[in-house]
């Protein structure tokens, strides 16, 4: 198993009861899991969500490593 920490932004945080923006949301996944597995686990598979890891927008097929911090954003435009 691997453990990743997820941070939610936009209107996503309120969909996860007890979510603490300081601590993030800890998710345990099987070894070899990717972003799409993570989104499926979170119930976000059917939504447009942009995952950012280490400052780079990640593909949904990107494999996750133990200890990864994943930031999840909804689509935005300029403001």
């Amino acid at each position: 198993m691997i453990t990743v920490t997820v941070y939610f932004y936009g209107t996503l945080p309120r969909r996860f009861a007890g979510y603490d923006p300081q601590q993030g949301y800890t998710v345990a996944l099987r070894q070899g899991a990717d972003i799409s597995n993570l989104l499926g686990h979170l119930g976000l598979a059917r939504e447009k969500v942009a995952p950012v890891i280490n400052g780079i927008t990640a593909d949904h097929c990107r494999k996750l490593a133990d200890g990864d911090r994943v930031r999840l954003f909804q689509p935005v435009q300029g403001g």
């Binding site: 932004y9 936009g10 209107t11 939504e47 447009k48 950012v52 930031r71 954003f73 909804q74 689509p75 935005v76 435009q77 300029g78 403001g79």
Partner: peptide, 19 residues
């Protein structure tokens, strides 16, 4: 649209700070 229909009414343009 999720940006104009949800994000903007709730966070305004300030929602861009995190991204």
């Amino acid at each position: 649209n999720s940006f104009t229909g949800q994000t903007l009414p709730e966070l305004g343009t300030a929602g861009l700070v995190s991204a």
